[in-house]
Amino acid sequence: MTISVAQSVINYILSTSFLVKGTTIIYDFIGGEPLLKINLISEIMDYAVNEMKKSNLGLKFKIRITTNGILYNNSKVQSFIQKYHDHLIISISIDGTKKKNDLNRVFKNGKGSYDSIISNVYLWHSQFPFIGTRMTISHDDIPFVYESVKHLISLGIKKIDVNPVLENVWQEGDEVIYEEQLMNIADYIIDNDLYFDKELDLTCFDEYIGKPLGKKDMINPCGSMFLSVDSLGRFYTCMRFAKYSLRSKKPRIIGDIHNGIDKNKLRPLYALDLQSLYTSECFFCEVATGCKWCPAENYDSSSTGTIYERSVATCNMHKARVRAKNYYWNKIYQKNKWIE
């Protein structure tokens, strides 16, 4: 992206009332690897801050960056962090143990990235102690989930989102291994009394998951608040609708910096509710809450190019998570019932 495109984007956002109706704008930089372009990010944010002040809209802002962590200790990156620390939400993607991390996160020469980022993880954690990490898992990663979560906890990371990919990569039996891995995590946390630590937040054991749908679950949890823009200034509701993210479908562009947003193309995302999206099997599923889905993955996997065909590739993985979560809470209850 050029600075000129970025400036046009900011000008468009600040002059478009329905986009800035809230009081906080979150500038989310995703790559590739965003820290490769720290000078550009810095220039964009300096411009954005200046324009927000000039606009007199009373806007606050946050800057969100998800990085692989390799350049985290770079002096320019650190200068940027110093300048915008109070506005920054930086996450380093680390997938757990060296073995697990190096399965997916490798340099061009095939060498894993773990050894290059581990010291940066400590630096990051000292600068942003309350920010967690997302652990994305695919078929090959499942046997390492327990060891990886344990490792992340040992690094001091307290908020961990174990997240099976939504794509249809799963094989028969994966859910059995996944369930075992999550139960091992449950045992580790409970046997070591880590669950008393209020800051420890493992989303895989959210109490909310695994219940029938209620009224509050009916709305689309995604896609209604984001404006994504690619390097050429084309708008999407999420970068997962951009060409490079999609496997087989055409990019779903909702406008560009020259013509603005076509609001008609936002309507399906804003109106999307579960009654319209779900088949009866999903709608009446007894463990439906917390079962993740994504409009863009729906679109990419659909038979007719619609966001309204619910992808169910993670159904068995979700059910495994629900069983492990039930085990977790029952085990805590059994352990503490004498206290009550």
Binding site: R252, K263, N264, K265, R267, P268, A271, S276, G305, T306, I307, Y308
Partner: peptide, 12 residues
Amino acid sequence: KTTLEVNTPSHE
């Protein structure tokens, strides 16, 4: 044609 979805009408 207008919203990319058969089940969603346009504003117009």
